[in-house]
Design a protein around this nucleic acid. Structure first.
Lengths: 221, 221
DNA sequence: TAAAAATACGAGCGATCGCTCGTAATTTCA
DNA sequence: TGAAATTACGAGCGATCGCTCGTATTTTTA
């Protein structure tokens, strides 16, 4: 027997897909400016050049807007992380590995302030909190895999904690990264890499050079 | 001539002071649960066992509630930091200094989830954002002073950046610290201290032992 | 080309929320 | 003890906001 709860299966036109992208773009901007709770659905529609009715033709409710936006971010993150967390980078020396992983993530977060706004909001509804988890797990699991390759002898529990703490350290510096101007950014990113180097180095390279505190080479030269 | 804009100078009874404390306690709880924007003033009043009218007899508007709450937190922080950032701790070895500074701050944050809720909200009104700054500067400046004592030769600019980054690293781990159970807490606090040790050590003790990654002694023995 | 489907509009409904105001009870003051 | 001041109440006002619905336009389908 056919499924009673099946979706009405409506065909989407090219117009509709485009509208959805415009609405998600507008939602990202408003979320970034006002935060999720204070963002108005009418303002989102207006910024997308649409009416409230049109908005609710594509999204069941306000939460669904943020969920769809999150799904779009996760898809884009997978592409960005496909480069940043390529298995080959696990074999690189730690400084190079940090360059290859952190730079793309910094670029992504700065290019998508709406993503940062949703991820850093601790008071979302349970459904939205669930929508955040794939993005959280993405970075954590990929880093965990790299650590497993680099330090196969490290107990899984310690490795997992190390990956989790490393992610949180990065997130702690994200406010500085997000609010920095273009010319302030290199110094902060360098500092971020030093922090993670100092934290990760003794845990995965037990007998490497103990520090690199005066390392000041910039990005991409 | 007398100031036209002077306040009406109303005398506050003991009842009133007590009510204010109750209202601030309720506000802290609701802010922590729902976040500032989603917290309702009627719910705050109800939880304090008061009516909306009573609430607005003591606070001009919703923002003023959060501002008064912040002021109360700052006063309590000054007391806690008076111990945590006593000038004497600047002379202690780095591990002991971290014990003396981090433990009280962790205890304060965990005992005051409303403080954490307001401080971590990036979408408050400009007035409320201004009310946050004293609390932000408190920790930063005291740490900056300690660093100045310990590393007098370090350029002020580098020292300031180091203090700022150290505070952000701590804040990055705060979500883990806040959500931990009592028995998970010691391990996370130890990890926090290791992170800050690894970060601060090469910057203020240029020729000390380079790492202490397997240090596992608990709190307060 | 005509019917069907998808997209678009925007006024406005219903609920929520910050806040008021008329009134009453309690405490302080003279 | 009487008057003034402070505290307390809670129904409800006005504004905001998520969302709907009747209708009109555009695109697809047959």
């Amino acid at each position: 027997m056919p499924d009673d709860t099946a979706k009405p299966e409506r065909k989407r036109q090219a117009r509709g897909e485009k509208r959805i992208e415009e609405l998600l773009d507008a939602a990202a901007a408003v979320f970034a400016e006002r935060g999720y709770k204070a963002a108005g659905t009418n303002e989102i529609a207006r910024r997308a050049g649409a009416s409230p009715g049109t908005l609710y033709q594509f999204f069941q409710n306000k939460d669904a807007i943020a969920e769809a936006l999150m799904a779009r971010y996760v898809a884009r993150l997978r592409a960005a992380h496909g480069e940043a967390f390529d298995p080959a980078v696990a074999e690189l020396p730690l400084p190079e590995m940090l360059d290859r992983t952190i730079d793309p993530v910094v670029a992504f977060d700065r290019a998508n302030p709406g993503f940062y706004a949703l991820m850093s909001d601790p008071h979302l509804s349970p459904e939205l909190a669930g929508a955040k988890k794939p993005a959280q797990k993405l970075m954590f699991q990929r880093l965990d895999q790299i650590l497993e390759r680099r330090a196969p002898d490290l107990p899984a529990e310690q490795r997992t904690r190390t990956a989790e703490v490393a992610v949180h350290l990065f997130r702690g510096l994200l406010p500085l990264i997000m609010s920095a101007t273009e010319d302030e950014l290199p110094a902060i990113v360098t500092e971020t890499k030093e922090v993670l180097f100092n934290y990760l180095s003794p845990r995965i390279d037990p007998d490497a050079t103990p520090q690199r505190n005066t390392r000041t080479r910039g990005q991409g030269d």
